[in-house]
Deep mutational scan, measured.
Amino acid sequence: KRPMNAFMVWAQAARRKLADQYPHLHNAELSKTLGKLWRLLSESEKRPFVEEAERLRVQHKKDHPDYK
């Protein structure tokens, strides 16, 4: 399984919050909304998630050196 990218790291927590706020939204609508919200974030707001995704990528490479 591939490591999560920055969006997926962020969306993991954001999806729970959004689903709690809008329990009537279908998963497809949640995903579209999350995409729009992510694009509205500034680079500095995204930075911690980009850094975490990079950490996960490096760890994955270490754990699975033959993964392509």
Rank of each mutant, 00 (worst) to 15 (best):
L30S: 03
Q21G: 04
K36M: 02
R39H: 06
L18A: 04
L18T: 03
H64P: 14
H26C: 09
A11M: 07
R57E: 14
W38S: 02
P48D: 07
P65D: 12
T33F: 12
G35F: 03
S44Q: 05
E51K: 08
D66H: 06
W38L: 06
H26N: 08
R39G: 06
L25M: 04
K68H: 12
R15P: 00
A13N: 12
H26D: 15
V50M: 07
K36N: 10
S42E: 01
D63T: 10
A28F: 15
R39N: 12
P65C: 12
E51F: 01
H24P: 03
A13F: 02
V58D: 11
A28T: 13
G35Q: 06
A19E: 11
S31L: 02
Q59S: 08
A11N: 00
A11L: 05
R16D: 05
D20K: 09
D66W: 07
V58R: 07
Y22T: 10
L56R: 09
Q21T: 09
N5I: 06
R2Y: 04
M8P: 00
E54H: 02
H60S: 12
P3A: 06
L18E: 00
W38G: 01
V9H: 10
Q12S: 07
E51V: 04
H24F: 03
F7D: 00
P65M: 09
L56Q: 09
A19D: 02
P65W: 05
K17Y: 06
R39A: 09
A11H: 00
L34R: 00
D20I: 12
L37G: 01
V50C: 10
V9I: 13
V9T: 09
D63L: 06
H24V: 03
R16Y: 01
R16K: 14
Y67G: 14
T33V: 11
A13G: 12
E29R: 14
Y67H: 12
L37S: 05
L37P: 00
A13V: 09
P23F: 09
L37Q: 15
R55C: 11
L34Q: 00
L40G: 15
R57V: 07
A14I: 02
T33C: 10
P65E: 12
A19H: 12
L41C: 04
L25S: 01
R2V: 01
K68V: 06
S42I: 03
R47L: 05
D20L: 13
R15N: 01
M8R: 14
L18Y: 03
L41A: 02
D63E: 10
D66C: 06
R55P: 12
E54R: 03
R2C: 05
L34H: 00
Y67A: 14
A19I: 07
N27Q: 10
D66V: 05
K61Y: 07
L30V: 08
E29I: 15
H24T: 11
N5L: 01
V9F: 04
M8Y: 07
H24A: 08
M8I: 11
P3G: 13
N27W: 14
A28C: 13
E45L: 15
F49M: 09
P48R: 04
R15G: 04
A13D: 15
K1G: 04
E29L: 15
A53T: 06
D66Y: 02
P48L: 02
P65H: 07
R15C: 02
L25V: 03
E43I: 10
G35S: 09
Y22L: 15
F49L: 09
A19G: 05
V9Q: 14
A13C: 08
L40N: 15
E45A: 15
L41S: 07
A14P: 00
P23S: 15
K61P: 10
K36S: 04
L56H: 06
H60G: 10
D20M: 11
H26E: 13
Q59M: 05
A53C: 03
K36P: 00
K68I: 10
Y22N: 04
S44R: 15
D66G: 12
L56S: 14
Q59F: 07
L56N: 11
M4A: 08
P65A: 10
P65K: 03
W38M: 02
P3R: 13
V50A: 09
E45W: 15
S31D: 13
K17W: 04
A14S: 06
L30C: 03
R39Q: 06
F7K: 00
A14T: 10
H64K: 14
A28L: 12
K17H: 05
E54I: 05
P65G: 10
K17E: 09
R2F: 02
F7R: 00
F49T: 13
S31R: 11
E45C: 14
K61Q: 09
H64L: 10
A19V: 08
R39T: 07
L25W: 10
K36R: 07
A28M: 09
